[in-house]
Each structure stands twice: as C-alpha cells, then as structure tokens.
Simulated assay, not measured.
Amino acid sequence: MTRYEFALLALAAVGYVVWRDWQRSEEPGAQSPDFIDQAENLFYDATEGNFFGGTEDTDMGQAQLNRAAFLLTIRTGEGTAGNDGYRMLFGGGKFDSFADHPRQVVTALSNGKPISSSAAGAYQFLRRTWDTLAARLGLTDFSPASQDAAALELIREAGALGDVDAGRFALAVRKVRKIWASMPGAGYGQPEVALERLQAAYQAAGGVVNG
C-alpha cells in the first residue's frame, strides 16, 4: 500500500467515525455497537492485559448480582431507574403496552436542542436497534425481562460483559459509552452522568468493584 492509499484509507476511517457519532447524536438511545466500537474495545483489552475479558475465575453468583447492578447503573444514567422506567418514552412520556416496542417518534428538547427520537424503555432502545436485537434473541414482546435481555446483549457485543461479571466497573462503563449517550465520555452532546454517581448506584444495588 502506498502512502497515498494509506492516507486515503485513514481519512475514510476518520470520516466514518465522525459520521457515525453525528448520526447517533441526532437520535439518542441505545445503539448496537459497530465494528469501530468493538475494535476500540478489543484494542483496549489487549493493551491493558484484559483480552476477551478474562471471566474464568469469576464467581458466577456475584457475576449475576453485578449484571443486575450494572443494568440499574444504565437505567440510572438514562433516567429510567424508577418504577415506570420500563414504560418510558424519549422525553419522559409513558407508553401503555409491552406487546412491542411502541415505535413512537417523540420530539423533545435535549441540552436546549430539539431532537426527534424513537427511543423507548428502560434502556431507551431505538426501534431499529430493538428490531435487530429482538430478531437475534427471539424476543416476542417488549416486557421488562426482554428489555433486560436485549441490554445485556448490547453489553456483550461491546465486549464488556466479562468486565461486568468480574467487577471491572470503570472499564465496562468505558466500553458501553458509545451505546448509551448518558455514559461519561460518550461525547454525543447529550447530558452525561458522572462515573462516581453511577458507581454509587451500582454498589448500592449489590455490585462489586474489582478495578
């Protein structure tokens, strides 16, 4: 590959990342991690010595508690940790039926900017993200259990599930920050929640921090 070809390839990659983040900022909500996210997280694992998450020594009883606590952490960031969080529409409204993703596009202000989004549920799934996850996992409704399962699948896709299980809290948050705009360092121009607040919610829910 010539220097010119390499420069064009690098420019295209940078352009894609900018386009990807711009597109996501236009419609906040849970997004399936793309290959850029996954490559970044695998590279981070490799450089930090945590390649593939390293779950073989994990206490699976505690791992299940960590998963539940981490899901609560995400709901805390998304503002859906209350009793009606699983019924939440973007902008704060509620939907009535768990039969399916509500598929309503709502326009609301975010940081003073009007944004239209189909985000819904405890993890603010976009309808297109939900359809992909529901087909993959065989989910037949939008119930709380289905929403939790889909959120765990996004965490797994991001390469963060092993970190959640092992209690590597800050690393797990870093890996999912491009999926949920409320995570610290997401960089989408949406309100972000401080890592300290998220960790406090995680530990209060029984999650253990091991790094």
Results as ranks from 00 to 15, higher is better:
Lys175Cys: 09
Asp57Glu: 10
Phe43Arg: 13
Ala194Pro: 14
Leu198Ser: 11
Ser146Ile: 06
Leu89His: 13
Leu126Lys: 06
Ser118Leu: 05
Phe169Asp: 02
Leu195Trp: 10
Gln31Met: 13
Ala186Gly: 07
Lys178Gly: 10
Ala63Ile: 01
Val105Ile: 03
Ser116His: 03
Gly77Arg: 07
Gln147Arg: 11
Arg24His: 08
Ala39Glu: 11
Glu40Asn: 14
Glu153Ile: 09
Tyr16Met: 07
Ser117Glu: 04
Ser143His: 00
Gly29Val: 00
Tyr188His: 03
Lys178Arg: 13
Thr80Val: 00
Ala172Asp: 11
Gly207Trp: 06
Glu196Thr: 10
Lys175Val: 10
Met183Phe: 04
Lys175Leu: 09
Ala200Glu: 12
Gly189Gln: 02
Leu161Trp: 04
Gly54Pro: 01
Gly92Thr: 05
Phe43Lys: 12
Gly206Trp: 00
Asn83Arg: 11
Pro28Leu: 04
Tyr86Thr: 07
Leu171Ser: 09
Phe98Pro: 08
Gly91Leu: 14
Ala150Asp: 03
Lys94Trp: 02
Ala201Met: 08
Ala170Phe: 11
Ile179Lys: 08
Ser146Asn: 05
Pro144Cys: 07
Ile179Leu: 13
Tyr202Asn: 00
Asp163Ser: 06
Met1Trp: 14
Asn66Ala: 05
Asn41Met: 07
Leu42Ile: 14
Glu157Ile: 05
Leu198Ala: 09
Gln104Glu: 15
Arg103Ser: 15
Asp131Met: 02
Val208Ile: 13
Leu65Val: 13
Asp34His: 01
Gln62Phe: 05
Tyr4Asp: 13
Met1Thr: 15
Phe51Cys: 03
Gly189Met: 01
Arg197Ile: 11
Arg174Phe: 02
Thr132Asn: 08
